[in-house]
Each structure stands twice: as structure tokens, then as C-alpha cells.
Design a protein around this nucleic acid. Sequence first.
RNA 1: CCCCCUGUAGCUCAGCUGGACAGAGCGGCGGACUUCUAAUCCGAUGGUCGCAGGUUCGAGUCCUGCCAGGGGGGCCA
Length: 554
Amino acid sequence: MTPEQLSAAVGSCVQDAVRDGELGVDAHAAVPERFTVTRPRHPEHGDYTTTAALQLAQHAGRAPREIAELLAVRLRAVPGIAGVDVAGPGFVNITLAPGEAGELARTIVTAGPAYGLGTALAGVRVDLEFISANPTGPLHLGHARWAAVGDALARILTAAGAEVTREFYINDRGVQMDRFGASLRAAALGEPVPADGYHGEYVGEMAREILAEDPGILALDPGASIVAFREEGYRRQLANQRSELEAFGVHFDVWYSERELYTSGAVERGLARLHQAGHVYQSDGATWLRTTDFGDDKDRVLVRSDGESTYFASDTAYYVDKRSRGFDVCLYLLGADHHGYVGRLRAAAACAGDDPDRTLQVLIGQLVSLVQGGEPVRMSKRAGTIITLADLVEWVGADAARYALTRSSTDSPLTLDVDVLTARTNDNPVYYVQYAHARIASVLRHAQELDLEAGELVATLLVHPREGDLLRALGEFPRVVASAAELCEPHRVARYLEELAGVYHRFYDACRVLPRGDEPVTDRHRARLWVCAATRTVLANGLGLLGVDAPERM
RNA sequence: CCCCCUGUAGCUCAGCUGGACAGAGCGGCGGACUUCUAAUCCGAUGGUCGCAGGUUCGAGUCCUGCCAGGGGGGCCA
């Protein structure tokens, strides 16, 4: 019996009790159809606990303990439930019949890669935009966080049934691009880079490459030369970013150019839509969007008095364009330094006629910093002391990097310690999790060598406390995936895997799986092999959601 | 002035969207390798959950106000 099935059983017991008028609750009152069952911290509280009675007591005419007793009577009649106790103020503690938990091993092994998938977001089309760096420099550590988190989130939302498009918005329009071109040209000429330009070492390197390939580029008049450098630099930088991300295991379905937004007429269409909705006005020679109609603290300029469109115009038009491409939800992953966007973006969505609560979701992630030798390492794309995504992958490998970046809540600032990450010690929990997987793979290899097929599962033999712990942990996986998707919090999967790995290691320590020496093969050996196979499946599925490899050997 | 995030064990951080006596890893202390991978496990130690109120059967979790740290507020990008 899975937690989901148990939860449904509790729900139907409640419904029946309400229907029979046992609870003193109005039959038409809003009673939840499902009550979550949780794993109690202490074993003496049973396998699962529900607080349904405590919740029902709010609008019932009976004391919580009385309700709990009534539910207990009904739950005891449910097949697969061995015992029900009422404790404390009205907790209902449930103990499953021997073998019920063990059957989960069969369920998991049978489902294989499908174990953990859900349908909560079935049919929902999600546009997930993340990173969206300027094509003027390498991807840095901050981008690395969004790359890891964004890709993991995409995988998790997909597992919850959503149809996800990973989208990268290329900021290839505006003065930063011109500054990039001017910086490249200055470097090629051996002149100092303008103060407002780009000063990283990569600028000089790239300038030399461009010059080597096209020596005539400096013969152009300065304006044309800057444009030529800009375009060639753009092309190379974008290609670099793309290959760095592929090396990191992150693949985007759509690379959307801001320029394209203009050449395709998307900006005009977006502005027309806003005009039509009546939220656009002229003032001081500029075109404004009345975002204050929808909670923004001031109106925003769409077209400046000099005729240039603002970034806000692009962002708004881009949103409208995404919606017109059929996405139900536009999900943005932004750094904390862009949180000022959220209010105006929501207002813009509302101006376009949408309900931002439904169609727009913005995740604000805190910044990443780096320490080395106890000293903070400044990272600035313009200053040149920059740690890139490629550096990180080279130093610690994609797995460790992705895992370290994904296991923390994006609400927390993340500090990566170069010394720790480069030392390759077991400080990094990814090894702990991967080791559990490799350990199981090893056991299963030995089983195969012994010609010991898992065979028939006699689930009632799985009665050791560590086996119970492991099975209960395995049962949590679908709910972890579902909540990670609902809350857009990939780190929940990582934390769960660490817990599962720990539970497995303790099981392994206490429960011998394979027969020793000439010991005859028993059903207990076989049952434990089933549990190992199930654990391996969940570890592999979970690591897969994070984009981290599940190694056969370590 | 306004907005966002954070404050939990020596350190880095979880805390299942309000439940039972507050958790993990790392560091430090003490143990376990003739046996399936010791990248592991076990034990002891370690916390007025920033402070003060409030909501209720019940608060690390929700509300209000403070304190501290970080990040933002533009006809910049």
C-alpha cells in the first residue's frame, strides 16, 4: 500500500463518516477529500500518521479524540491496515499489515523509470525561461546556478505531467552590444578598452581570434568596424555559451533573440494589444504603460522620447508573444538583482488582459558567491575576475557542480567553496548519494554472478526495522516529486535523495543481502534483492531529475 | 523612504506548505573493515529556532512590530 492509497483510504473513511452523520459535521460542509498521511518521527507512532481528526474538529461538533476513535474504527476495516491507534490530542497512527509495505518494492521495480511520475500538471504547457545572459561574455557562476536549477526544474515539472519548453532569451539588442563591439575593436587595436566596456581577458583573446580570421576588419571605418566586431563577437559568444551549457547537460528548446522580437513584428503586436486594452498613453514625448492600474508603484516607459524602445517594451512584448505561442504558464527564473522586474511584469501581464496569478510565475533566486582560501572571490563580468561555468565544470565535474547548485533552496544565498569543491572530498553530498547507487549496482552484479535472480517476492519477510525504514522512504518519492513541482523547489529532490541514501546505507549495514559462502539462497535474500533493486530505481530516477549521473561503479 | 530574501547545533544548510520530545552533513570526541564497495556505519556531544507580542487545541512554520545582514527601486542595461 502506497502513501497515496492510504491517503485516499483515510479520505473515503472521512467521507463515509460524514455521510453517516457520525462526526457532527454538516453533510454539505466543505470537507477535504484527501488527508495527507505523514511519516511519524518515532517508530512507536506507527508507519503513518494522519491529523485528519484534528483538522475536522475545527468545524465538527465533537472533540478531536472522539473523531479520531470513529475514524480508527473505520480504518481498521481497511484491507492492508494491521492496526490503528489514537494518540495525543487526536493523532491517528496507522500500522500496515506485514507485507503491505514490502509490496512497494514490486511496484517500484515494475514501474522502473516511471516510478515517481505524476499527473498533477497534465496538459499544462509551461514556458520556462532561465539564464538569458547577454551574449557579451562567458556564462559565470550565477548563470551556473540557474542552469542547474532551471534544467532540474524543467525535468521535475515534466515528471509532474507538464509540457515544458526550456527557453533562453538572448539580449542581443541595445547599447551593451555596442560596448562589446567597441571593446573588441579596441583590444584588437591594442588600445585601452573604454571605461564602460568589457575588460575580461576573454575580450582580448576573442579580438585576436577575430582579427586572425578577418585581418581586413580593422580597415573598415570605425563605425562599421565596431559593428563587424560586435556581430562576430556575438556569434562566437553565443556559440560558446551554447556549448558550455551542453557540456553541463542543459539543452534549450528555444533560443529567442530580442532582435527577432522586433524584426518579426512581435513588439508591434504586443504594443497594439496593450493599446487596444487601453492602458497606453503619451506623455512628455514618450509612450507609457499605465502599470499603476495593476499595483505597480509607478507607470513605465515603453518608447522613450528619442524613439528607442525600452527593455520593458521588449519584456512585455516577449510575454505577450509567449502567450500567443500557446503557453499556459510563463515561468521566469531571475536573480535577486532583478526582483524589481516582478511588479511591473505582473502589471504588464494584467494590462495584456491576463491574470498574472495564473499565467505568470517568477522565481527569484539569491546570488551565488565564491570563496577560496577563506577569501571571497569577486566575480564581475566587466572587471574580468570571473569564474565561469566552464571553469566550474572543469574543476569539479558537471555532476558535483550541478548537485551543489541544486541542493539548496534558491531563497538562500549560496556560497561555494572552491577548496572544498576542488578537493573532491566527501564533503560533497553528491558522492554520498551516488555511492549508494554504485553500492547497490555492485550488489546486483554479484547477485547476477551467483545466478541469483530476484525471483518471487515474499513481501512478508521484510520485517526488519531497517527494511521498514527503507520501504517507507521509497514510498515518499512520488510525493517528493509532486511537491517539488508544485512549489518549484528542485532542492527537495536532492534532500530526499540524501535521506534515502542514508536510510539505504543503514539498511545495508544491518541487513545482509546476498548469501555468505555456501549459505543456501532463501526467500529473505530474494526479498532483500527486490528492495535493493527498488532503491536503485528510485536513486536513479531522482538523480535523473537533477541531471546528475547515477554511476554503476565508483 | 519603499520592496524582496535571509537569520535554526562550532560551520554549511534542511525542516514534508500548522502537528507528537527540533534534523542532516561537515568539523571535533570515542568505536566498527578475515563477510555483498569503510566514498560506509554505530555511539556520545552539541540549539532560549534573531527579539517581542498575536492568532489556536498546537507555531521553527501563519500575522504585526522591532534588530541584524544581503539585494533591489532609473526615459540604465
